[in-house]
Amino acid sequence: MESTFKEIFQKKNATRFLNRHSEIVVFFFLILMVFVAAKSTPLFLKPANLTNVMRQAASLGIVAIGQTIVILLAGTDLSVSAVATVSNVIAAVLMMGKDENILPAILVALLAGIIVGFLNGFFITKFSLPDFVVTLAIYSVVNGLMFVFTTGREVGSVSGKFMAFGSKDIFSIPITMYIWMGLTIFAVIFLQYTKFGRMIYEVGGNPESARLSGINTSLVRVVSYIICGVMAAISGLVLLSRLGVGYPLSGKELQLDSIIAVVIGGTSLNGGRGNLLGTVAGVLILSSLNNIFNLIGISTFMQIVIKGLIIIIVVVLRAMNEKNQ
């Protein structure tokens, strides 16, 4: 953060702090929800269950990192689920169960993420097209290609070593969780402490001013979409390590869930404000919610309804909040 904790407490301006770090409110809700969940069912707090939640959260969380960056630029990336699927399928097919193929498989999967991200950024900046149209179209194309390629079935297979990534825990925390946290830390440093990271906030906050100050806004945008693509690709690999095979429907929920998590976490859809900590909280809330629903026995159908309601409520609240400022 910009100030050390000592300085924070020395500042008398509590409201300013809260305003700037709205993710605190989100974490509060997270804790509240955990509390409610624990009360409703003893199953929630069982270590095995929590581990499960973390596993789910990891794959969503990694995508959400990239999505946060794109949304900070006032954009949206609707192609993330397709990228996760591509990465998943390609890596599985290239690996074919052999350990020595792990590295090339991973590299090609990441490359796919880079390419799709680049295409997104390119079409959006070069032709000044609305981002949701471009990413939606690319989602469609890539998804379709995957269906054609896999004919809707599972393909490929992973090697033992790779599978271990997905199933092993260290101190009963899944390895994938560590990967998510590690990536988040890198991303936080990136956004907060690198010149480029600050440019993302500047372009998102006031693109015209940023441009007039000499910042290459197109470059910032393209790179951000590439980062998002890579994150989605990594998430696809994480999914692969759990599933064991390439499956074209693997990343389906990531598309909307990643956006919901980012929005819940406090990042504004208009760009320029928000941070990854809020997104982390949002991801945890969403994953816990899914988990609690399953534990209590709420039908998948009802879950979808509630999710829809949550989106609407959160967005309305944020819109009202932003109107007041």
């Binding site: 690198t194 600050r198 906030y201 940023a210 100050s213 404000r273």
Partner: peptide, 23 residues
């Protein structure tokens, strides 16, 4: 830029970097 602080606005696009290349 509205949601960034004064100092960052002054140094937009040309932030001072430390030895590690970070802001």
């Amino acid at each position: 830029i509205p949601y960034t602080d004064v100092a960052e606005n002054i140094f937009i696009g040309r932030k001072p970097l430390n030895n590690l290349g970070l802001v």
